[in-house]
Amino acid sequence: MSDARTEVLARVREALGRGTDAAPAPAVVPRGYRPAGEHAPGSEPVLELLVDRLVDYRAHVHRVAGAEVADVVARLVEEVRTVAAADADDSHRAAARPAPGSVVVPDGLDRAWLAGLSGDDVRADARDEPLTATELDGACAVVTAARVAVAETGTIVLDAEPDQGRRAISLVPDVHVCVVRTDQVVQTVPEAVRLLGEHPGRPQTWISGPSATSDIELDRVEGVHGPRTLHVLLVS
């Protein structure tokens, strides 16, 4: 009896009525769909569309100038801590909410964005010095950059480069603060895929709003296993 690989491939060839002859040339696929949107990346209509989509997903959007990022990050972290502390007093909710903890950042993040936080509060994570899953679970928030955002679908893509970090860090903490530059916002999915296709081997996470489920009578509940709160800082 031949091995499974040989046999499955032989079955496939037989099903197609082919021997081991050369493969047919790739078919010409009709690509009449839009390869790009009508608006330029980072243009005002594209940014407005992105904000509209993100708000629809109940993400929190903050349009800020570059110099304001540190202040807004500090304010959001402070808010998270206050809420977490209040929840910790409520024993019924305590099990589902992390206690006030540190802020996780990828080690390649622009440190200027963290200027409003005390150094003790921040824990850097890197591939060669990773925090454990339990440590991440104890963090109150994570701050990352992004690779690209798609306005039409309200999607932000992270590709695990040093300013975005390992996939786990934007997953386990309950609050994700994501900093997106306006020039990173494209209108359509194909524009983003072409850009990401320059480095297809990088692990990617496409994020469209906070995690959600509609599994119980299709009643949407935001926030299941991933971060229950998503803040997007749109920086011009």
Binding site: E152, R167, Q204, W206, S208, S211
Partner: peptide, 8 residues
Amino acid sequence: RMNPYTSL
């Protein structure tokens, strides 16, 4: 318009 998470 897009599902919350896609992993590649």
